[in-house]
């Protein structure tokens, strides 16, 4: 029939109103996402168009001693990625371990408890993680780092640990579902060849779940990239490209910066923060897109 664009307009007019309603609803989702991009861009325009002198009117931009917007955003991007990657490096092995524990090693009751532990960890709001980080984890780490670094240790290392605890539930639940679906035949095949339990896992489970694990890791990474409250409470902010994760006041993430500077920001300031927000949006989008790509390619290989 007459097809214009993605709709079959002829059929559309003949069909019932409910179809129109649900179509409209889907279009609305499109519109919302479009609106998000448009409004953010619109809000970011003044800062993007402003000259360096205009930007110097923002007190915290001035004290950051940045030469232009790019120079302002890059240390934030660096710290955001560094903290999230470090969190992932800590979280991924633990997540895989817990997933294996639940699926293969634990007796049924213990497996139920472990699942329950993961579910509750996933429910904890990020503000509580922030409070726990500064009131429990910092003093705890202080015992070891006491005279070596700043006290309390409000540094990237501590933040990454808290971020790791936050993303472990996400990664674990996805990987656990994947590992539960490992083909029984592969498992039995490995046992049949005389493998020990760990060798069976190494042979059958890990390769099978590799792609899914990578996809889950990217999703966890996306979550860590956008975390705000824990950063706001725990991290002492600074600007540098330092890899010293124990150095105080050397890092600040994009989300933490937005939350910290927003109360003091005039309209140009909010505009500049929106620019950084857009950068964060793009980074998270790329990470999530990569996760989807990896997951899809994994499915295709089976």
């Amino acid at each position: 029939m007459s097809k214009i664009g993605i709709f079959n307009w002829h059929r559309l007019f003949k069909t019932d109103k409910f179809y129109l309603l649900v179509c409209a609803s889907s279009l609305f989702v499109l519109i919302i996402l479009f609106a998000i991009t448009v409004f953010l861009l619109f809000s970011a325009m003044p800062a993007l168009e402003s000259s360096q002198t205009g930007l110097l009117g923002i007190s915290w931009y001035k004290s950051s001693e940045a030469n232009n917007i790019l120079d302002f955003c890059l240390p934030l991007v660096f710290s955001t990625i560094l903290s999230s990657l470090l969190a992932l490096v800590i979280a991924l092995p633990v997540s895989i371990g817990v997933a294996l524990f639940i699926t293969f090693y634990a007796p049924p009751k213990l497996a139920a408890i472990a699942s329950w532990v993961i579910d509750i960890l996933a429910s904890i709001p990020s503000i509580v993680y922030g409070l726990w980080g500064i009131f429990v984890l910092c003093p705890f780490l202080n015992v070891f780092t006491g005279n070596l670094i700043s006290s309390p240790p409000r540094v990237l290392f501590t933040l990454s640990i808290v971020l790791a605890v936050m993303i472990i539930p996400i990664i674990t639940s996805i990987i656990r579902d994947i590992y539960t679906g490992t083909p029984h035949l592969d498992i039995e095949a490995a046992y049949g060849l005389g493998a020990t339990k760990w060798e069976m896992i190494r042979l059958s489970v890990l390769p099978y779940g590799a792609q899914g694990a990578m996809s889950a890791a990217m999703l966890g990474l996306g979550r860590a990239l956008g975390e705000t409250m824990a950063v706001l409470i725990i991290l002492s902010p600074g600007r540098s490209y330092s890899f010293n994760i124990f150095g105080v006041s050397s890092h600040q993430t994009i989300a933490g910066n937005i939350a910290a500077q927003f109360p003091e920001a005039n309209s140009l300031g909010v505009s500049l923060l929106t620019v950084t927000g857009l950068v964060l949006f793009i980074i998270t989008f790329l990470v999530n897109w990569a996760a989807k790509k990896i997951a899809k390619s994994g499915v295709a290989n089976v």
């Binding site: 007190s59 915290w60 001035k62 004290s63 950051s64 001693e65 700043s150 409000r154 002492s236 902010p237 600074g238 600007r239 540098s240 330092s242 150095g247 105080v248 006041s249 050397s250």
Partner: peptide, 13 residues
Amino acid sequence: SSWPSSIASLSQG
């Protein structure tokens, strides 16, 4: 009003 950024990494904020 804003702590100088050159010595920022010597202190906590």
